[in-house]
Design a protein around this nucleic acid. Structure first.
Length: 473
RNA sequence: GGCCCCAUCGUCUAGUGGCCUAGGACACCACCCUCUCAAGGUGGCGGCACGGGUUCGAAUCCCGUUGGGGCUGCCA
């Protein structure tokens, strides 16, 4: 039997699962599953210690499972550091790498002094013959000239001028391996046959090829998937775009719908129908047919796909999955604060209904009292938007919001009780309800901010009825 | 700045030199169905970025321009 296909998906733990990563995972998975004996490895790229949080790794597993993508093997990249360091030393001994004592500032200063505006390492320590030691990083000795041919199934062949490749770092000054090294070594040891990843990794192909050659190892098949971009055609980023798979899950997107939609980003099933069952995707997927142009993530189209899947559900399943969704995303998180506040189940359930509406219906009496006839409401809501948006995702807790709101209130000389009123109405539509901060936590940062913003807009348009000047003809 | 990648309806795509008067999906519009709203059906709007080549023939091949994007870190 010929060598079996082996692919790997190697996300780094970041606290959320990027939809772009999900697409990469899907394509790797499709490739593995369509080949007899194909293996799909899930490698957690935790080389950066800041990302080495167990709960973040757990999130990757749960998101993959939710998406329905199973793996044959999984391990954290950090497991192999000893081996990666060993390979690095091997490269040093063979003369393919050298130790470097330069700091980033020094390199920058030298470049600046020479009037070079282009960043990059200047090769200062290249021939100093430095021994390993504290404060010294190991750099790969990139050939000064010559060319290297990069072959990509999706993008074709390119000759890379080696003079444009810097002497990149293999080992940090503290001795720990960097991504390019760790990745290359693990791919070799895992006998990966196809490296399928995002286009943002394209420019490290030459570095990995260089490492492999120095080690006397051949190349895998390279395939770089097009970027998934926002409507401004920029790479989807956590900061400005809705990228977390978990958010779509909380929005009620079905995993099969998201998976199917992701499959149409850079690729299309044959025929006129885009909504196809997974097995069809598995058999029809062709890596070489993947597009090279970046693809915009279109939430409306995702929603349309989701509608198809939702309607196609057998009644029983529709009911059970709806209940599951409500239980895990709303009821369980709110149970503690809601259970003690009602006499009947419908009464308690109604306290969580604000979660369901993107724009919850607003009770006019509450609105008038807390917002419209409250001269401080506008400024207070504005301060809340500002204050809340400065809160990082992982700090979005009831305690934090409580303290923050109390602080904002004090700026207006208001007690917490008074200060929270307009916020509560803006977010839940009512002046009564479960404890506000717990509710905001369940609702999430983005939704909370959107609702506050909407209230502000509503208030603005109501309080400024006459925009036209007096001298209107 | 340097290196690299990309370019078909608003968006995702089909298209690999003649089958293209460019097909489908989402969105949008209209009509039909209908107690509402959806769903569904029918129809419509809408695109090969531009300029040069090559060829009997170009969305498809080549060159250039323009426009987007990625990388450029002792992040991954």
């Amino acid at each position: 039997m010929a060598d079996a296909l082996r692919v790997r998906f190697s996300p780094s733990p970041t606290g959320y699962f990027h939809v772009g990563s999900a697409r990469t995972a899907l394509f790797n998975w499709l490739l593995a599953r369509q080949h007899e004996g194909g293996r799909f490895l899930l490698r957690i790229e935790d080389t950066d210690e800041a990302r080495n949080r167990p709960e973040w790794t757990e999130m990757i597993y749960s998101s993959m499972t939710w998406l329905g993508l199973d793996w044959d093997e999984t391990y954290p990249q950090s497991r192999n550091v000893a081996r990666q360091v060993e390979v690095a030393e091997q490269l040093f001994v063979a003369g393919h790498a050298y130790y470097c004592a330069c700091t980033a500032e020094e390199v920058q200063a030298r470049n600046a002094a020479r009037g070079i505006k282009t960043p990059g390492y200047d090769g200062h320590c290249r021939d100093l013959g430095l021994d390993p030691g504290p404060g010294r990083a190991l750099r790969f000795r990139t050939p000064d000239d010559g060319k290297l041919t990069r072959v990509d199934v999706i993008r074709g062949t390119t000759d890379i001028d080696l003079s444009t490749v810097d002497d990149f770092v293999l080992l940090r000054a503290n001795g720990s391996p960097l991504f390019v090294l760790a990745n290359a070594v693990d791919d070799i040891d895992d006998a990966i046959t196809h490296v399928v990843r995002g286009e943002d990794h394209l420019s490290n192909v030459e570095k990995q090829i260089l490492i492999r050659r120095a080690l006397g190892v051949g190349e895998p098949v390279w395939a770089h998937l097009p970027m998934i971009v926002n409507d401004k055609r920029q790479k989807l980023s956590k900061r400005r775009d809705k990228v977390a798979l978990e958010m779509y899950r909380d929005d009620g997107i079905l995993p099969e719908a998201l998976r199917n939609y992701l499959g149409t980003l850079g690729w299309a099933p044959p025929g006129d129908e885009e909504i196809v069952p997974l097995p069809t995707m598995v058999s029809a997927f062709r890596l070489e047919d993947v597009n090279s142009a970046s693809a915009a993530f279109d939430v409306k189209k995702l929603l349309a796909f989701n509608g198809h899947y939702l309607r196609a559900l057998p009644r029983e399943e529709f009911v059970s999955r709806s209940l599951d969704w409500y239980r895990t995303t709303v009821l369980e998180p709110m149970a503690d604060v809601v259970q003690e506040r009602g006499a009947t189940i419908p009464e308690t359930l109604s306290m969580t209904d604000f979660f369901l509406h993107d724009a919850p219906p607003i009770d006019m009496a509450s609105w008038d009292k807390a917002v419209a006839r409250n001269p401080q409401a506008g400024a207070l809501l504005g301060a809340a938007v500002e204050g809340y948006s400065a809160v990082a995702g992982e700090d979005w807790t009831a305690e934090k919001l409580h303290d923050l709101t109390e602080e904002i209130g004090s700026r207006f000389d208001l007690s917490l009780g008074k200060a929270q009123a307009p916020i509560r109405v803006a977010v839940t539509g009512r002046s009564v309800g479960p404890p506000l901060f717990e509710s905001l936590v369940v609702l999430g940062r983005d939704r909370t901010l959107a609702r506050l913003q909407r209230a502000l807009t509503r208030l603005g348009s109501a309080s400024a009825p006459s925009r036209s000047g007096p001298s209107q003809t």
